[in-house]
């Protein structure tokens, strides 16, 4: 009984916390990386597509991923109606080196890049439309 209740409370707490956190676009913290002045950067070659003139939305997906569909729809929508914004989807399983380097722990993970390829925002879980728009660099 005690085990049952403990697990139930712990799982519920995690579920509520996870739901709040899921899909939030957080600003990238350059201090996470060695080159604190410039922040982590991705090149067109690394993501396999040209960078957008204003921003690039890099989505890491996998086959075993239910929310990737929703993330794809949201990001493609933003890319379609915002000038200079490009949506790039990367198969996480086929790009494990990039996944390890960027510490992508789950799919979907979305990175917001500015026009130089610098990572300025990051969301794990299907991102929310307003959050994505707000995270776009000027």
């Amino acid at each position: 009984m005690i085990v049952f209740l403990t697990v139930l409370v712990a799982a519920s707490t995690f579920g509520v916390w996870q739901r709040r956190r899921d899909g939030r676009v957080r600003p990238a913290t350059p201090s996470d990386h060695a080159d604190a002045d410039t922040g982590e950067r991705l090149s067109a070659a690394e993501i396999g597509a040209e960078l957008g003139e204003r921003a690039t939305l890099v989505q890491f997906s996998s086959a075993f991923c239910q929310p990737c569909r929703a993330a794809r729809a949201t990001l493609a929508h933003v890319a379609a109606d915002t000038e200079g914004v490009v949506h790039v989807e990367i198969d996480a399983e086929a790009n494990l080196d990039l996944v390890r380097r960027l510490t992508v722990l789950r799919t979907p993970t979305t990175l917001v890049l500015d026009h130089t390829g610098r990572i300025v925002g990051r969301a794990s879980g299907a991102p929310r439309l307003h959050d994505v728009r707000a995270a776009l660099p000027a």
């Binding site: 396999g48 597509a49 997906s61 996998s62 086959a63 990737c68 790039v88 989807e89 990367i90 198969d91 399983e93 086929a94 790009n95």
Partner: peptide, 10 residues
């Protein structure tokens, strides 16, 4: 055998 459902250039 990478799953081809999300085929993207690497």
């Amino acid at each position: 055998h990478p799953n081809p459902t999300t085929e993207v250039a690497s």
